[in-house]
């Protein structure tokens, strides 16, 4: 099904500004960065997590542990019709028990990805708590999940698609709302 651009929601400048704001909110809400770790969900949550971690480090002048989570093994739609997704490595090179985990993804939609991510993290250890930061919240939740930090709330219809581009993956920074052609 072909899609075309409906409206650009963010460009490189607004995206950067948004990430700076989220970084500040994380520090503020947690009263510092003690025991803070950042985990990005593959694929586009990873560069966003890296950037937020870097911004926090710049502000607080301490290094923040950063991990990568692949939720494929925890998906609830593996046996649905269609080819199976590629499993990539999870790389969380630190213990998460008693840590304050900030989970980062690009778009919050049905909530199923976050459900998988929560299960996955809890299998890895017992964090003090988990908070969720997303660049875009487009609504249409299918599970009782909400984000602690939201870059931008975007009301969408189910037929629309939110396309997040990041330099690291796509060569540019932008968020575009797409609709059916």
């Amino acid at each position: 099904m072909p899609f075309r651009e409906k409206v650009q929601l963010m460009d490189a400048v607004t995206m950067d500004r948004t990430l700076i704001r989220i970084a500040h909110e994380i520090i503020e809400r947690n009263k510092g960065v003690q025991d803070l770790v950042i985990i990005g969900i593959r694929t586009r949550g990873v560069p966003l997590a890296r950037r937020i971690a870097k911004k926090i480090e710049e502000i607080e002048k301490v290094s923040i542990p950063m991990g990568i989570l692949d939720i494929t093994m925890y998906r609830d739609d593996l046996t649905a019709v269609g080819p199976q997704p590629i499993v990539r490595q999870t790389n969380i090179p630190f213990r998460i028990t008693d840590k304050k985990v900030i989970l980062i993804d690009d778009v919050l939609f049905t909530g199923r990805t976050i459900r998988s991510a929560l299960d996955s993290i809890i299998d890895l250890g017992r964090p003090k708590f988990i908070q969720l930061a997303v660049l875009i919240d487009r609504g249409h939740r299918e599970l009782p999940i909400r984000a602690d930090y939201v870059g931008k709330n975007v009301p969408t219809s189910l037929e629309e698609v939110v396309e997040v581009n990041v330099v690291e993956e796509d060569g540019k920074d932008s968020v575009i709302l797409m609709e059916e052609d």
Binding site: D70, T72, M73, Y74, L78, V87, R88, Q89, T90, N91, D119, S120, D123, L124, G125
Partner: peptide, 16 residues
Amino acid sequence: KAFKEVSTRDIKKVPT
């Protein structure tokens, strides 16, 4: 490669 990591965890099990 991705599955090898699972065997190094404390909880060596995923619900796949």
